Simulated assay, not measured.
Amino acid sequence: MKNSSAISRCAGLAFGVLALGMVGVAHSAAGADGAGRSLGAPGGPGADASLIMQRLRELRPDLPIEEVRPAPMPGMFGVELAGGQILYVTADARYLFAGDLYELGDTDLINLAEQQRIAKRLELMATVAMDEQLVFSPQGVTRASISVFTDVDCGYCRKLHLEVPQMNAMGIEVRYLAYPRAGIGSESYDKIVTAWCSDDRNEALTRLKRGEELAAVTCDNPVARHYQLGRSVGVTGTPAIVLPDGQLLPGYLSADELARTLGIEPS
């Protein structure tokens, strides 16, 4: 997948959420008293969060809600969904909007939603042991590292892998995590399990990305865990690159582009 904008990637979800907002307003109006006042539950932030969770469960039971907590904007709560998308709901559970919340800083706009996603992403990525990843390290000094969710049958994943030697030469370490796009139990899943279960895992991954056929092998492996982790941190396609600061870059970037992103002068 070539690097693409966050707007296009979220378009489908945003449409569904707008529908939820319209249904929610109508439903809430029916639950207000004659003066139009909200009949929201009394109490502090905990009561508001419970009310919001209850209302969303009633209206959209399929929403993958992970957490509801006060937002930086007074009177609003952030509803975090699986994958990192955040919805914002008023404390009385009457109004909802989809989209990132920004603070007007002294010199620039600050994306508060992305800050929250980054913090969660860093926390989740820190749970992955180094020996669970396929690591391509520089021969000399390591100046930076990237984590890459990859699939062996993805064209842009293969293109990115061809750039790994150049990245290593610039001091960039590449840490691969498995993300078979077709899902657990698919042919791509079986192939990437073979890479993780081979005696020389890095060589097996490289050969599979060349399109070579390898005899299938299996073992106790982290592929399913990596796949679920990818979904939790916001991966929707491959390759997906996570930078040391927690930023998620969807799609392919050249070695030179990645180096510049990491503050390294390309060579």
Rank of each mutant, 00 (worst) to 15 (best):
R55C: 05
S254H: 09
G246K: 00
A178Q: 04
I118T: 13
K2M: 15
S254P: 14
S50D: 13
E67Y: 11
L56G: 01
P250Q: 11
P244L: 13
C154F: 05
A71W: 04
A216N: 07
P72D: 09
V148M: 06
P72M: 06
R201N: 06
A6E: 15
N221E: 10
Q54G: 15
A129Q: 05
A98R: 04
A169P: 01
A93T: 07
E114T: 09
I264C: 11
A119G: 07
I184F: 10
L39T: 09
K120E: 12
L59P: 05
S188D: 02
T218H: 04
M76R: 08
S232P: 05
G251H: 02
T127Y: 14
E80F: 07
A93D: 03
M130C: 11
T127F: 15
I264M: 15
D151K: 00
D62S: 12
G24Q: 15
R94M: 07
R143Y: 07
P222S: 10
D245F: 11
A129R: 06
A169I: 01
E66R: 11
L104N: 14
T107R: 11
G140P: 09
I192R: 05
P74T: 09
S137N: 00
I264L: 14
G43Q: 08
G230Y: 03
N202P: 09
G155W: 01
D131S: 03
R207L: 02
V223A: 09
S232Q: 09
R231K: 14
D106A: 12
G31Y: 08
L162E: 13
N168I: 01
V135I: 04
L81C: 06
Y252L: 06
Q54F: 15
Q228T: 12
S8Q: 15
D153T: 09
E213A: 12
V164I: 10
D33V: 04
P180I: 03
R69G: 14
V135K: 07
M76C: 08
N111Q: 08
P64I: 01
M170R: 03
D108V: 14
S186V: 10
V193K: 02
V235Q: 01
P180L: 04
M130F: 13
